[in-house]
Design a protein around this nucleic acid. Structure first.
Lengths: 182, 182
DNA sequence: AGGCTAAAGTTCGAAGCTAAACAGTACACG
DNA sequence: CGTGTACTGTTTAGCTTCGAACTTTAGCCT
């Protein structure tokens, strides 16, 4: 009895057809773009998750490593800045840092110049982990775009940045804590 | 003291420049696409979240409504099928359905033909909520793509579906519960 | 039939997150 | 100076999720 095809993974086109059946005022061209975007992003996150898991770090930890590396040498940030950057509450950041300190990926110390602040700093091991993850990720990304010519890549990048600009302008970040990592 | 620009929201280009500084083997064209994809997706999810919140439902609930509507009339699915569709464990599904039943969005009843199974069915109110959310979402999406010509939209949709096909082939869904909604 | 295996859904305990209350520190201003 | 105000990071309580054990039912196999 078990097999029930079509439930767990409808094709993109099937899905769009279903949407049109249920909601006529839908531009299939628009919906195709939006659905593909969403789906693509999710698959990619799964792929990243597997790669980082293979290195013994979680996706969450990888995000912290990325933020620290992107901040540039000497790879230091305060917990609140990290939290803003990752789109988390400071509370969540506290726990994440706890974990990462105990795993030797970062250190945490008080800022002697301003004793309210805490400095989270990447360790050599953390940097190494980031590098390994980065190698895997960039390989995967290169692979993903393999079918697109350089012109197509340019056009794609251009279209996406235009969409991004639009969504960023349209929404003045009312909530406060919206920006986050990629 | 407070203001610390550049920490909470680096420009896409700034970010890519930083990546290149730290990791030379990186194709900026590729990274631009990937970063824009990720960022764009996140902003869109935030926007969806606000819209559904305005309707009194959570993003999580909206996903369930979408899955049910997409399944077609009579808008019924089992909890496990829903869970697979949304990429959740059955345990999480149980609780979500509890909530939605108590809010009148769906009903839950045993399948008399096969008493192991449970049937989750959309209520009229649930369908109405879906419709309202859909109207908002499609308006937002139309707005988002406003700057792109029809040719550009076609090219974008085409490029994205090609990427999607590639990522779906490259990863044979080894984990089992990977597919989910958009 | 009688029992074995498989599957659906729920329940239980642990992990991670959020929002809100709570400290501790620095700076401004009377 | 000393007090008020703002800001940083941690703690606490509640919610959602996951992984795994458990219950109930269905179908198979001698």
């Amino acid at each position: 009895m078990g097999d029930n095809p079509g439930v767990s993974e409808p094709t993109l086109d099937e899905q769009i057809a279903a949407y049109q059946r249920e909601f006529q005022d839908l531009d299939p061209q628009v919906e195709k773009i939006v659905s593909a975007l969403s789906r693509l992003n999710r698959r990619m996150n799964v792929a990243y998750g597997r790669q980082t898991a293979g290195l013994g770090i979680s996706n969450a930890e990888w995000e912290v490593l990325k933020a620290l590396v992107l901040s540039g040498a000497p790879y230091r940030m305060g917990p609140s800045d990290l939290a803003k950057r990752l789109g988390l509450t400071p509370a969540a950041m506290t726990h994440r840092i706890d974990r990462m300190v105990s795993e030797g990926l970062v250190t945490r110390e008080r800022d002697e110049a301003n004793r309210v602040r805490v400095i989270v700093e990447l360790t050599a091991e953390g940097r190494e982990k980031w590098l390994e993850a980065m190698r895997l990720a960039s390989g995967f990304e290169e692979d993903l775009l393999q079918d697109l010519s350089s012109e197509e890549r340019n056009a794609l990048g251009d279209a996406l940045t235009r969409l991004l600009r639009r969504v960023e302008h349209a929404q003045p970040d009312a909530g406060g804590r919206l920006s986050d990592l990629d």
